[in-house]
Design a protein around this nucleic acid. Structure first.
Length: 461
DNA sequence: TGGAGTTTGGT
DNA sequence: CCAAACTCC
């Protein structure tokens, strides 16, 4: 019986996995494959490293249901063709993605497979609402979040699919690379062993994280999620980006919490929909990822990468909360959402540095990096994006810290955390006895005014 | 999902 | 004197 190739990408789970479920339901052998392909090769260091952990975990999960994850490296289409030749597969299935490089790849793969007489099927799994299904009254796509939210919040997302209890194996497995040979940690030239203490890898970890969040934290989510020192967020971004849990599972959990009268539940649903909105925008306006969404920002006198940006990266700006947040980033591979907004505002406004510099750095260092959310977030902060904060909305890091870190617990925690020195890029050659930056590299009032002046000048032109 | 400076209306 | 309201950036 001809096996089905299941091409895994950002869907490293068994539960609520439409492509996998469909394949299993055909009653034919299924061959799951992950390809280290032309798109994945472009990822930054931390995402690649974290991917390796995720692949290890889903490999074990697949083994537990009688299957095997095949690992191959190469151009996606070439590898799939080879596998078709090797296994006699007549069908290839996958779950859809929406960012341009992924979408161009997938469209081309589908075309070529069908031209070769194969069945190629894709499924919705990564987002709650596919970009082309959310349409404004005038037939366009949404550019502002709130109307987007209102148009989707009452939709039925369908039930989550149960995980297959067994996955039929082919008579013979095609050859597979060894995960260790890919050396996905190679690019991570900083302390992977430090970050490893902070990641929650795999489907089980994701589900228990969701469970704990719903049970203990969602009720206070509204206010607690903004507090820098509190564990008030769901922490699920890391799992969602690799598809270790489905957005739909999170959605159902949030809806149930809302029905149980948990106050913060709707805010959690809104955050899930922000993630969808990012993919909506990335699909309809692919340039969101790399260029100013509003092209009139092309004329803005951004500084490119520069010494101030380097101080920002190294957590040596002299602004306590900014430096703390950058340390949190290296040690944990993540950063509190409020801190992300704050360091992004600081880099783009006070340091007048192009948002791409920050976005690229996040793409290299975050274990929860998501191309759509990252680009949307940075453009929102910079003012160049759709539904963006107006440029004059400049966060004062000290004021923000006073509001969201009132007892300075967050700032103190990361100032004192010595593991930072083991977690930073080795090339930085920084040591605990380095003299701390006590004086801000840019005065907050001056930086704010300089940014406002540049904005005013640009508007006057 | 602002901040800073000013006005206002209460003490 | 102070905080809420308001305005401009």
């Amino acid at each position: 019986m001809a096996p089905i190739l299941y091409w895994m990408r950002r869907d490293l789970r068994l539960t609520d996995n439409p492509a996998l479920c469909w394949a299993v339901d055909q009653g034919r052998p299924v061959i799951p494959v992950f390809i280290l392909d032309e798109v994945v090769e472009t990822w930054g260091a931390a995402p690649k490293w974290r991917l390796g952990l995720g692949l290890g975990s889903i490999g074990e999960s697949l083994a537990a249901v009688g299957s095997t994850l095949i690992l191959r490296r190469g151009k996606a289409l070439d590898v799939l063709r080879e596998l078709v030749d090797e296994t006699g597969a007549e069908t290839v299935v996958w779950n859809r993605l929406y960012v341009e490089d992924e979408r161009l790849r997938d469209t081309s793969v589908k075309e070529h497979l069908r031209d070769a007489g194969l069945e190629a099927k894709s499924f919705q799994a990564h987002v709650l609402f596919e970009p082309w299904t959310v349409v404004t009254g005038t037939g366009g796509y949404y550019k502002v979040y709130t109307p987007f939210w209102k148009s989707v919040r009452d939709r039925d997302v369908g039930p989550a699919l149960t995980a297959p209890s067994s996955v039929a194996a082919p008579d013979a497995w095609p050859g597979s690379d060894a995960l260790d040979d890919w050396d996905l940690s190679q690019a991570m030239r900083r302390g992977a062993e430090v970050v490893a203490d902070h990641v929650h890898v795999g489907e089980q970890a994701a589900q228990s994280r969701l469970g704990a969040f719903i049970a203990h934290r969602i009720a206070d989510y509204d206010s607690a999620r903004d507090m820098l020192a509190e564990d008030g967020t769901s922490g699920l971004s890391e799992n969602l980006t690799y598809g270790e849990i489905s957005a739909r599972s999170c959605w159902h959990a949030g809806r149930r919490a809302m029905e149980d009268g948990k106050a913060g539940a709707e805010t959690f649903l809104k955050e899930l929909v922000w993630r969808d909105f990012a993919h909506h925008l990335a699909y309809h306006t692919p340039h969101l990822i790399r260029e100013n969404w509003k092209s009139d920002w092309d004329a803005f006198p951004w500084k490119g990468d520069n010494d101030l940006a380097e101080a920002w990266r190294r957590g040596r700006t002299g602004i306590d909360v900014v430096d703390a947040a950058m340390r949190e980033l290296y040690v944990t591979g993540r950063m509190h959402n409020r801190a992300r907004m704050l360091v992004a505002s600081y880099l783009t406004k006070h340091l007048m540095t192009h948002w791409k510099v920050g976005a690229d750095w996040f793409a290299d260092t975050l274990v929860d990096w998501d191309p759509a959310s990252n680009a949307m977030g940075w453009q929102w902060a910079a003012g160049s994006g759709p539904d963006a904060s107006p440029f004059f909305r400049i966060f004062n890091p000290d004021t923000q810290a006073a509001k969201f870190d009132p007892d300075a617990a967050y700032r103190k925690r990361w100032k004192r955390d010595r593991s930072f020195y083991a977690a930073i890029p080795r090339s930085w050659d920084m040591a605990p006895d380095d003299r701390p930056v006590l004086h801000p590299i840019v005065d907050l009032a001056e930086g704010r005014q300089r940014a406002l002046d540049a904005y005013g000048q640009r508007n006057a032109e």
